[in-house]
Design a protein around this nucleic acid. Structure first.
Lengths: 196, 196, 196, 196
DNA sequence: AATGAATGAGGGTTCATTCAT
DNA sequence: TATGAATGAACCCTCATTCAT
């Protein structure tokens, strides 16, 4: 077996184990056993348990950041997104379900703990804040934006992890664009009125 | 130090430790040390680790169930809720932030594991499904309802755990009632059209 | 409740617990709980766990020693015992089943550990040795006597702890007197022959 | 030190500790210390405490069962046994003194608990019962048989654990064959008489 | 005299990591 | 480089005994 294969095997069994039990409760022994590798050998490929986690998650993270900065401009152009943009993002997440799940739910005890919060604060919030400010023509209370962001995020998550087919997802994206659009307009009006 | 205080101290340090590390990874030794109590003493107050968890969470759960069955009927009457009802629920959760967080995020390894899923599937979903069916005048795809439910749930969570003042929360509930209302109507129309 | 009663209650529940689990594995907590006494109170009546054991067992031991020295002379007079004597001994043991059982099987960890061996070596062996020597008219190999003694002891034990009625026991004593008698005579002849 | 030696060391110190304190009260830490091994290392060789017990006892048990079924037929042929058979059995037990002692006296808390009772009830009793029935030409009271069985068992135990030389044992077997024979005949006659 | 919470060492077991081979 | 036994601290829990009340 080539080094490459062993590494892949560890990444595979590591992903499964981390998803099942979270980083801290995951058993290195089990990961190694499932990869048909000795515990000692593990340390030829990774320095510590956490390095395996990083190896699983980092490649996607790079791709994600690339995608994000490619897409962020267009996402900013309107709150209902550009529906194509939304679909592209969702498709990307779907293509990396495991890695995102690891980052969102299984990263306690690693450097990635709090990933979701940083995502929200550093990437999403500025985007949405700008969008709100633009449409409301004033500085919108961040609390309002934050609630919106969380709901949007949740919508994505449910679409990705709800076990739906791509067709269903496309359909749901469509419907929830209507929902979000109408809601957003109503919310902006509400803000404008308050602001007078 | 009175018995009462020790029990309270254990409940306090237990809450902190469980919140920090989850039930399984929480260390009884740490809990006891922070409560300035020996590990042996712990077992004068609780039979097992999980009993401490239960002691933290159960009183709130009872109150919650009472509240739920009191409030569920009115919550069913319309999708924007009865705003008073929504506020009462949020206030309740705010008053028991820690306990809910423990149930939602830190209960793996206890009898309460999967609490959020059961809450969603057994309590929220039927409620929302009924509401959608009623307004759409047809059987709405559960996927649509589920996405909505998750978004609503997230909204509550953000209000509760976002660190807002009660006044801010009241304001946000108000605004997001507008949002949800308009969105819901738009969504229902969308469904009705499809259904023709 | 009088002191006397508490002591008795502890002796009762202690007997049960010691019989069930042996001295070392017996739980003082359980003994106290079953006697409806606090663990602290226990130490008003007994200095240590072992003292309870002694309190259970000592009164019988005294009575036993008295009996033994009363009966030993007649027991020495013939190997089939004096059947009345045998019955008296068995009846005595039957009347103190629990205490003997504690001494024989549950005393590990107490000063009484090895009770059976001391009984055999210090009381039974000399008696039986003398008997053999007398009938064989020579010094019989202690190994021969010792095997005999163990078999005799076992016979008693089975009669006492086999769950038989007193009537059955009387009958069995009768039959096994035949057995022992015939066996003994045969054995003695064998020894005499060897000795020529 | 080779793996083999460590396993053997653990089996050695485990045997000693189990014999001293019984399975449940035996301390793994002590076993490991005496084997000059850390507690963690233990679990490279055995999955649980009980597995060490099994490892000590199982090889002998297999050999025993083989022996038993080889020998049982001839043992049935007469009550004084076939003396060769008796000797073979005793020699076997002598060669596995520790293991038998563990099974008979130290197995509480393991799957082997109650070994002696099962041996008596499932193997010895049917054998002896059949023998008695055959010679007495009628169904003999099981109580009579059981007492006999216990005495016979005790005789074996004393021979094995009495610390005798093999030569002494051979001699004692011889003598006690006379004893048992004569006793048995007398007992059978007694039974026949009663039965008329 | 009676309480029962507190002690603190010890129980069996698991674990990420190390290191001699 | 690969092995997997060894480490040793930490895990939750139990216990006989003590001692302030």
């Amino acid at each position: 077996m080539k080094d490459f294969d062993i590494r892949e095997a560890l990444i595979g069994s590591g992903t499964a184990e981390f998803l099942d039990h979270g980083f801290e409760k995951a058993s290195l022994r089990t990961i190694c056993k499932n990869a048909k590798v000795t515990t000692g050998a593990f340390y030829s490929y990774f320095e510590k348990k956490e390095d395996l986690f990083s190896a699983i998650v980092d490649p996607m993270l790079e791709a994600y950041h690339e995608l994000y900065f490619t897409v962020v401009a267009s996402a900013l152009s309107g709150i209902d997104g550009n529906r194509d943009t939304e679909l592209r993002i969702i498709e990307f997440i779907c293509a990396h379900k495991d890695e995102f799940m690891l980052l969102f739910e299984c990263a306690d005890g690693t450097q990635y703990a709090g990933f979701r919060d940083r995502l929200h604060n550093d990437l999403f919030m500025p985007t949405y804040q700008a969008c709100f400010d633009k449409y409301a023509e004033c500085a919108v209370d961040p609390a309002v934006v934050r609630v919106f962001m969380h709901m949007k995020y949740t919508q994505y998550m449910e679409l990705v992890y709800g076990g739906y087919s791509m067709e269903q997802i496309r359909n749901l994206v469509q419907m929830y664009a209507e929902f979000t659009n109408a809601g957003f307009i109503s919310l902006i009006n509400c803000i404008k009125k308050e602001n007078i």
